Computed example of a mutant assay.
Amino acid sequence: MRRFPLAAAAAAFLLVLLPLATAATTSGGKSPPTSTTAAKAKAPAPAPAPPNVTALMSKGGCKAFASLVTKSPDALSSFQSAVGGGVTAFCPTDDAVRAFMPSYKNLSDDGKASLLLFHAVPVYYTLRGLKSSNGPMNTLATDGSSRNYNFTVQNVGDQVSIRTEASDAVAKVRSTVYDKDPVAIYAVDTVLEPVELFEPVEAPAPAPAPVADAPKASKRGARHRPKHVADAPGPAVDDDAADGDQRKNAKKNKAPGGGQSTRWLAAITAAVAVAAAVLV
């Protein structure tokens, strides 16, 4: 009578183990996935690397400028740091950099870095955004109130241009090198010169005021010319002096030269008469 409960207990135990054994056989002996494994499977993919600004510049016709940025540790690190928060760069074309190299070589290392950072704004601007933005802008070279390093954006129609106080030339945006938030790169045709590194351009002298024309004589004045005023009478001539002058003139007429002139005239008259007789 006592063995029946033990047999029933053994049978119940087997019924519990049988499903477990079946599950283990079906799964090939592998343990069910844990919560840690599921969490790893649902982890997001790593974020893409930020764009390489200098590489993009090189591909867009600004290889010389990108090379200068790469050779300046301060400028390169500032560009890379600004990418995450948004940046708009204006890279001069290779021809523009080549023409500017003599001036660039005369700058100190700090001056070179400031010049390169002067070509970028710490804000992402589309081309449409630039066209609607007129006025001064801070650059990556700006450092509080002691280092302004600002340039002015001026737009005429669809043309975006940049002006500085140190140059007469206006840098014009020629093409879009790259535009994908948060980075925009535009090619310009002139190197931007900050007034902190170069002498400001002298303002042109104001044009002289026009000189007023001299008043013209009126026609009425031209018609009525001033009458001639008779000369004042000279001193009275003494009668005795006048008689003396007349006597002197008479003596001159009686001079020997006067008689010779009369004889020559008579001779010429006679010769003419003879010639006329011969001809007859």
Rank of each mutant, 00 (worst) to 15 (best):
F65M: 08
V97C: 00
S108Q: 11
A49P: 06
D74M: 02
T176I: 05
G144C: 08
P233R: 06
G259A: 15
V121S: 03
P204Y: 08
C91Q: 07
A49I: 12
S58H: 07
Q246A: 15
A49M: 05
N155S: 08
L130S: 11
A250D: 15
P32V: 10
K105C: 06
T126M: 04
A236S: 14
N249C: 14
P182F: 03
P92D: 00
P204A: 14
D213R: 05
Y186R: 09
G135V: 11
D231F: 13
T262I: 15
L127S: 02
G85M: 07
R174M: 08
Y186Q: 10
D243V: 15
A276Q: 09
V170S: 09
R163P: 02
K131G: 00
A236Y: 12
A184C: 07
G157T: 05
K227G: 13
A277V: 13
S27V: 04
A271D: 08
S27M: 12
D181R: 05
L56K: 03
K131R: 12
N155A: 03
Y186T: 00
A10N: 02
S261T: 15
V121I: 09
Y104N: 04
A24Y: 09
G234D: 13
L192I: 03
A8W: 12
L130W: 07
G84R: 05
G86R: 10
P51H: 02
A241Q: 15
Q260N: 15
A255L: 15
P226H: 06
P50C: 11
P5Y: 02
K254N: 14
N148E: 05
L68P: 03
A277S: 13
T25L: 08
K219D: 09
S35H: 13
V278L: 04
T164P: 07
A277E: 10
F90L: 04
T190E: 03
V16M: 03
A141Y: 04
K251G: 14
P136I: 07
A39K: 14
G129T: 00
G259F: 14
V170F: 02
F13M: 10
S77L: 11
K227I: 03
D143R: 01
T93L: 01
V123R: 05
A277P: 11
R163M: 04
C62A: 15
A267I: 14
S161L: 09
D168W: 03
P73T: 09
F65C: 04
P48R: 11
D74I: 10
I162N: 00
A96K: 03
D158W: 01
V170G: 11
V183D: 01
D240Y: 14
A55F: 10
T269L: 15
T36Y: 08
F79M: 08
R2Q: 07
A217I: 00
L140T: 01
V211M: 12
P92R: 04
K105I: 00
A10L: 09
V183F: 04
R223G: 02
L279F: 12
G144T: 00
K112I: 09
V211A: 13
K59M: 05
F4N: 11
P206D: 08
L20T: 10
A222Q: 11
P46I: 09
A75I: 01
S167I: 05
A214V: 06
P136V: 04
D109S: 01
V97I: 14
P208I: 07
F100H: 02
L14S: 01
